[in-house]
Nucleic acid binder design. Structure first.
Lengths: 369, 369
DNA sequence: GTACGCGATTTGATCGCTCCAATACAGCCC
DNA sequence: GGGCTGTATTGGAGCGATCAAATCGCGTAC
């Protein structure tokens, strides 16, 4: 009566043994139906819940997934990872897993945290974000057979130095959103509205994510017959930020007078939006008049809350879907892996999920001059 | 050699007993210095780390703190809680605690999660956000003697129905930011720049946080001799949102032509900023000319990334400090409480921390006409 | 000389669960 | 009825740590 109900106390009350109660919960098919019912009603009656630590001590599984909080990217973006985390937490919870947070100053520190979390708390898996070329984290985890998924493709070239190690190491499970597809959709949407001089306002060449988004714009433009030298002129790369976006947009408008901007981020788009609106004097959603003085259309990327707030069209990542897929990939690894076993060597290649973003159309791309 | 190092394996290697190794880690003062050194060097050598689940099973403490993720407030705000969470995770980590996430559709569901998390994982404490009047969560936790802190004051009236239960229940540990102080500082800053007709753009009366911020503005205005009927005219309450902020600002400008706006959120401020700038045609930071046509100053609240991006002055909450204080209050409760003990009945009243926000001054409040 | 006190260390028990091997019991065939 | 198969259930062992109590060595007091 005193203290929390335990497997033994439930067993006594139901006149069975410990193990039978355990089986009722973990392997019901082994228990005779009438015994099942009886034990279950006792469980409900006393409100029994298994003790996680005790179970973990025996099974070597914690049912907990680790996630590193990024050091708060102080931009308009950054909310993306937070939203992903929300979705992940929700999805994990319904599948019987929990999310544990940790922080680290850099990748090296993150690996140190992996080590500690695995040794002391025996986390079952990790979700990695912000992957990049030559990511030491994926290598470390893969070498130790720790289940993990990355939100973001491994951007390493598919075939490294020929010895195949890199290829194997980067053949891990991942989920990502097709950025190129997003910008292409944006371009096509604008073309459908009659635009043809569509500029790309992105980051400097060299960031994989940025180049991917640029490539989508480029392909769509080229497909509609725009020449390469013209594309080069319409293609701008600046560091992320509202101010930078505004400056770059103004410069482009002076030189080439594009009728629309496709941007690599909402920050850049926000700057462009302000620049285009202040020059022409017409706010988003204002009336159309003739040809001159109509503000160019602007489309951002990531569909952050700010975009929603100011009526900025934006490419929206399916973050809930991404989180769901990430978890599915993780559970796949977890189910096939008994604590002591080695991870299977030749993994199926269908552990990659590339999702298509959608376009949230708002007033910043509804009108056309 | 095989398997992870355990307390026993370290003990064997150092030619001492299990318990001595345990003491080296948990009660070094009980161990003779030379033994201490010897055992410690073995620990380092084999890389021993205590196993959390085993420890928890015995001590009934998990060293884990629970935090509910709010269902992603889809505004410009909401980032506030995310930033608080970042700080909390960081602070907890250096003190040997971890943050575990969970979600719930409402307060009732949140309580159900508490129950489950306490029974199965034995979380040591919880951090609550978004507290409100008659919050069932704090009551539930307090009744069960579960340590917790809220980020946000209990807004219940100090003396309930006279039976004292509410007063006791709400006398829990909390950390909050003095919103009134923030808006007062904003007003004083504006007055220092020569402003006198300063409007308040807030939420409808009835939300405790909003009324607090309103009160700060009101007090500062009254202190400088503004009559009450004038204050009522300068005081607007609308639902949060950029569009609402813009509309309300425009209306105020038509009626009363205030020279400055103090807002209850960055969303409202953003709307006001757009409205003031589009009417006069001068962007933030543009040149001053005479008296007519100069854009009113605008100050927001929460210092969200967007504010930083568009040059909006804003009242900044000290979130890192808040997280640190919250944890200090928690650890205070945790240290004084042995697993089986009852919580102390008469708690000290110094478990409330009210922090002062600071003002981030940017271009939206630098000029004055 | 025995008793006592005190610090350092060891031993046995225990937390709540699952794994494993052993057992009881039914049904079936010869 | 004996032997076999397969299913339902049982008891013992152990996961890795801490707690509580026992033990040991040694100096001091009576």
């Amino acid at each position: 009566m005193d203290g929390r109900p335990t497997l033994q106390s439930v067993a006594d009350r139901a006149s069975v043994s410990r193990q039978t109660v355990s089986n009722v919960l973990n392997a019901p098919h082994l228990v005779r139906p009438e015994t099942l019912d009886r034990v279950r009603s006792v469980i409900d009656e006393v409100g029994y819940r298994p003790h996680g630590a005790a179970r973990q001590l025996r099974t070597r599984r914690s049912q907990v997934i680790g996630l590193r909080l990024q050091p708060s990217a102080d931009g308009v973006n950054g909310a993306v990872l937070d939203r992903f985390m929300h979705a992940l937490t929700e999805q994990a919870q319904v599948r019987g897993y929990r999310i544990m947070l940790f922080t680290a100053p850099d990748d090296h520190g993150e690996i140190a945290q992996y080590s500690e979390l695995l040794d002391t708390l025996e986390l079952d898996a990790f979700v990695l974000t912000s992957t990049h070329r030559g990511d030491a984290r994926t290598r470390w985890l893969a070498d130790r057979g720790v289940p993990f998924v990355t939100f973001g493709r491994p951007w390493d070239p598919p075939d490294g130095d020929g010895d195949g190690t890199d290829a194997v190491a980067s053949r891990h499970a991942w989920v990502d959103v097709d950025g190129a597809h997003g910008t292409r959709t944006a371009v096509e949407h604008l073309q459908g509205l009659g635009h043809s001089r569509i500029a790309f306002l992105g980051w400097p060449v060299g960031s994989d994510v940025g180049d991917d988004r640029r490539a989508g714009w480029r392909r769509a433009m080229r497909a509609s017959g725009v020449a390469d030298h013209e594309l080069d002129a319409l293609d701008v790369g600046v560091e992320d930020g509202v101010a930078n976006g505004g400056q770059a947009a103004r410069r482009l408008m002076d030189l080439l007078a594009p009728t629309a901007f496709v941007c690599a981020s909402d920050s850049l788009a926000l700057g462009a939006l302000a620049a285009t609106r202040s020059v022409t004097g017409s706010g988003p959603g204002s009336t159309i008049d003739g040809a001159v003085g109509v503000a160019p259309a602007v489309i951002g990327f990531d569909d952050t809350p700010v975009a929603r707030a100011v009526g900025l069209s934006s490419v929206a990542q399916p973050l809930t879907e991404a989180a769901g897929q990430a978890l599915a990939l993780l559970l796949d690894q977890l189910s096939g892996q008994r604590p002591g076993d080695e991870p299977p060597l030749d993994l199926p290649d269908d552990r990659h999920v590339l999702l298509c973003p959608s376009l949230a159309i708002r007033s910043s791309s509804r009108i056309h001059g």
